[in-house]
Write a protein that binds this DNA or RNA. Sequence first.
RNA 1: CGGGGAGUGGCGCAGUCUGGUAGCGCACUCGGCUGGGGGCCGAGCGGUCGCAGGUUCAAAUCCUGUCUCCCCGACCA
Length: 509
Amino acid sequence: MPPSKNAKAAISPTRAEDFPGWFQAVVKDAEVAELAHVRGSMVIRPWGYAIWELMQAELDRAIKATGSHNAYFPLFIPLSYLEAEAGHVDGFAKEMAVVTHHRLEADPENPGHLRPGGELAEPLIVRPTSETIIGKSFAKWINSYRDLPLMINQWANVVRWEMRPRVLLRTTEFLWQEGHTAHADEGEAREEMERMLDVYREFAEGFLAMPVVTGEKSAEERFPGAVTTLSIEAMMQDGKALQAGTSHYLGTSFAEAAEIEFSDREGGRQLVHTTSWGVSTRLLGALIMSHSDDDGLRLPPSVAPSQVVIVPILRGDAAPEVAAAAEELASELRGRSFGGAPVRVTVDGRDRGPADRRWEWVKKGVPVVIELGPRDLESGELAVRRRTALEGKPESVGREEFVAGVEGVLTEIQRGYFDTAAARLESRTARDITDLEDFRRWFEGDEGDSTMGGFVRAPWSEAPESLPILEELKASVRCLPLDQQLPPGSTCVLTGKPAVVEAVFGKAY
RNA sequence: CGGGGAGUGGCGCAGUCUGGUAGCGCACUCGGCUGGGGGCCGAGCGGUCGCAGGUUCAAAUCCUGUCUCCCCGACCA
């Protein structure tokens, strides 16, 4: 619904009024995604999918650069595969889609309707992740130490039957990339796990302008079946944490389950050490909650399907001339580059009022919108409006100057988003909370309250009795940061016991 | 699975208590005026009121059953 003329913000509710509601509205108004008529499932709309494709392209390049190759494995996994790894079963059993039949037949008790027929001898599950089925292939492909390391990546959809779906953040079906590698020893496998976390960190920070904390997951938050789970954690504008990517060292348990063995140099039989790592379409949600404002989506230029939109003001006799000028400007801009690729430009000459068109692109997060009318043709200037400066009049820039400097403009916007997010992460991470009272106060803000504290970085004992305290505050250990700064003799912020590690605490999505 | 709420044109809703043949805003279509902060006027299109059964001369409205969705809690990329 379009806001009234006098509305200050294009999105209702605003972040301060209702953060989750704001998020939904941004997603909807930007035409990124919407809930489908299937419970918990979403439709990713063209604008949202284009963003995902840009992410995919960049990440795919980075993954391949580490030596992994893309492949595709089955959607259906025999139940017995899952059963083979105990930890895995515990983690996923409660959220499985199970296929038990393979045909439909007329239902005699309910004319006009169909019912499942042809029961399967062994039920199939729809993959929640592919460790088990990829393991089967690995077992077949790996015979010798010469076959290692084996590094595979898959772009796929997965299904986890979530109790409480939220568009883009937690849906029953989502898209992701899952890497699976097998190595001769633990050291090599752990290196792979760390290398991929680094790929994710660079991608999040460099491409999505989203600063992250890198760390190890506590035992409670670890991936089911993993020995070690590393993650990148981003802070949303409401101070809550969002796990944006994970990388696991799986030890030899999946190798045992799928019998992935190889002959070493001495002719002995050994189990491989495996890793897995992934990021999902949840990144779209993270991106939105990191950068957007009360006027809608704000896209870093790197992931903006259109980086510059030209809105020609077509009226009267000058219309053909303006239309031609818009196309010419677009083509010149496409001759410039940003991030090593041609600048992406859209000319929006639809038969609607210019303000109407412009606001649509504002809400879609386009970094720069230029309105081009007869006046500009005469003056040789452009009315340039950056997504970061919607107030007041547009900036007036000489046409040639703008074209020549467009890469700089986009770079500035990209950097600005990162700097803003980084400043938020820094200022809303408390490093000086030492006792439980302050800790409680920090986290006691209302749900959805954007003034809620944020992260707390503090010494932790890992003692079991600290967990109920966190639960009560709806907070959790987000990670044990890789850059540990635990002063000797520290005591646990929750229990007062001797601390063994420095932890980042937060509320999480 | 527990606790709340809701199903009425594409979207958002009113009407339901006190049965009487469906209405509003937005969107959409057409015409005109407009057009650089998302505009105005006029004329239109569009709904068997979630589904099934019942009560009644008459049901969006009352009764019974059923399905679905949303919100809150336990689980999670």
